[in-house]
Design a protein around this nucleic acid. Structure first.
Length: 136
DNA sequence: GCCAACGTTGGC
DNA sequence: GCCAACGTTGGC
């Protein structure tokens, strides 16, 4: 099983929205690297949910419910972009802030720090475990 | 194929 | 609100 992190501006779509909805189609990704990552996702993979911009913290764990399929919101180039379905899995008891991540020596290689603009990224198993421990 | 111009993301 | 980083577009 692989681990992932996705970003969302909470003003656009928040963790609370996902919990309320019970499931969401993760659409609108228009970046090749992010898309390639989404294509690797398998049902059951766990996905940390990061609130960017206003909050800058990981707030929960989602789970991949359906692997990549064509993004129906991609009008002109259907087949080029994909979505996955995510369901909420568990809340973080404590949000893990970007500041905490930056301070943690063990997390210096995390894609979140190395490539700040990427919105869908893989996490190493050990990074996932560390973040999980920090959030609980 | 290079690179300048421009747009977007996201941290500060 | 600013700006750095990065991706994309288009002229040459």
């Amino acid at each position: 099983m692989q681990h992932w992190l996705v970003k969302s501006e909470p003003e656009t779509y928040s963790w609370a929205d996902l919990v309320k909805d019970g499931r969401t189609m993760w659409d609108g990704v228009r970046n090749y690297q992010a898309r390639n990552n989404m294509q690797q996702m398998q049902p059951g993979d766990l996905v940390l949910f990061y609130h960017s911009v206003s909050e800058k913290a990981i707030v929960g764990i989602a789970k991949v419910d359906k692997a990549a399929y064509p993004d129906p919101t991609a009008k002109d180039d259907k087949g080029k972009w994909v979505v996955v379905d995510l369901v909420p899995f568990r809340d973080f008891k404590e949000p893990v802030t970007l500041e905490q991540i930056k301070k943690d020596e063990r997390l210096q290689d995390i894609a979140l720090l190395r490539q700040s603009r990427l919105s869908v990224m893989p996490l190493k198993a050990e990074e996932f475990d560390i973040l999980l421990a920090l959030g609980n």
